[in-house]
Amino acid sequence: MQSLPPQELIALWQAQEQAMRARLAGPGTLTFAQVSALAPSEFFDGIGKGELPSPPIGTLMDFIPIEWGPGLFIFQGTPDERHYNPLGSVHGGYAATLLDSCMGCAIHTRLQAGQGYTTLDLRISYVRALNASTGPVRAEGKAVHVGRSTALAEGRLYDAEGKLYATASTTCMILGTPRTP
């Protein structure tokens, strides 16, 4: 898809976002027991179909899930003035939140029912500033390693022109015990 001209890719991204927003349920939370009782595909597909509540952080920061699969998760958001710091650019926490979310969810896609995760550390390298004219950006997380007690993932934040805004890596602690069928 990156071979499309940027304006066509932006239109495609916006159409994908609009379609997902139409399916998403309102914000809400589930307990760890409720989430970990589901296989990751059931959990994320349930959110994507509007059968489960969408995480409130997405509403607060205005980003949504776009694509997921084993070891991969992509969120999309469009930064604007609501996300600005006092210096007139998007606060670094916006990029950090999108990257932490996509990497954690990428790890989650590789877990088993009965397991969850929490971020142990988050490392970000900012490449360029985001602002209200950046347009939609995608945060793409990929699981690198999922072990018994820890997992590693990498992420990148980019726009429709392929410009890189930030990269990140994380270590997450695996919680719970896998359930046997």
Rank of each mutant, 00 (worst) to 15 (best):
H145Y: 11
A22D: 14
C105A: 13
T119V: 09
T171R: 04
P5S: 04
G28Y: 07
C172T: 03
E67R: 06
R21I: 10
T167Y: 09
A25F: 06
V90K: 00
T118F: 14
G50W: 03
T97R: 04
S101N: 11
Q14F: 00
V144R: 12
L120E: 14
M1Y: 07
H83Q: 01
A151L: 12
I64R: 04
V90W: 01
F75T: 14
G93W: 06
K49M: 15
L60F: 14
Q7Y: 07
G104R: 00
G48N: 08
E51S: 12
T31E: 12
M1E: 11
I57N: 09
V35R: 03
P178W: 00
G92Q: 01
A129F: 05
G77S: 05
Y165L: 06
G141M: 05
A37E: 11
D100G: 06
L130C: 13
A143W: 05
M103N: 05
P181H: 01
A132G: 13
R23F: 12
S125Y: 02
D159V: 01
L38D: 07
V137A: 04
G71P: 06
P136H: 00
Q14A: 13
R179W: 07
L157S: 03
D121I: 01
T170H: 02
P53E: 14
V144F: 11
A22H: 02
F75C: 14
F43K: 09
A33K: 00
T119W: 10
T170S: 15
H108E: 13
R123P: 06
G104T: 04
Q7N: 05
A113D: 13
I57L: 14
G26Q: 10
I47V: 15
A153G: 13
L98I: 12
I174Y: 07
L72E: 08
E17P: 04
G162V: 04
Q2Y: 03
R123T: 15
L130Q: 10
F43P: 08
G114E: 11
I47W: 03
N131C: 12
S125H: 09
S36T: 08
P56H: 11
D62Q: 08
F75L: 11
H91Q: 08
E161V: 02
E161D: 14
G92S: 05
T134R: 00
I107F: 12
A96D: 01
G114L: 05
A96P: 08
G114W: 01
G92R: 00
I174W: 04
